[in-house]
């Protein structure tokens, strides 16, 4: 995973995907996020996949209730997407995000 761009104010996306174990639902979520990153956000995508079974303290620190949860930490505002990401409409296409992406560079 790329770490160099973390914290930058550019149009980079910082995504954290919280899953619970290697279930079918978890794998589907990871797959979908990877596809989305590859298809829509080619370069500026930093994805971190966290298994809360392995790191339960991170679940508390990040206020995770449902799994899988995809947290878009950057760009602001923070959004949380819960579910297996099958229905991805509006995931990166929300009007506010588009403006952020367009105005940032």
């Amino acid at each position: 995973m790329e770490k160099t761009a973390a914290g930058g104010t550019s149009g980079k996306y910082v995504l954290r995907l919280f899953v619970a174990g290697a279930t079918a639902r978890s794998r589907a979520a990871v797959l979908h996020v990877r596809q989305l990153c590859a298809a829509e956000l080619r370069a500026g995508c930093q994805l971190e996949v966290i298994d809360i079974y392995q790191q339960p303290e991170l679940a508390r620190a990040n206020q995770i209730v449902a799994t899988p949860t995809l947290v878009k930490a950057l760009p602001r505002p923070v959004r949380r997407f819960i579910g297996n990401l099958l229905n991805t409409s509006g995931l990166f296409g929300g009007s506010d995000e588009v403006e952020v992406i367009n105005s940032a560079p």
Binding site: R79, I82, G83, N84, L86
Partner: peptide, 8 residues
């Protein structure tokens, strides 16, 4: 902040 995107 939350948006549902499927089963969870």
């Amino acid at each position: 902040e939350v948006q549902e995107t499927g089963e969870y």
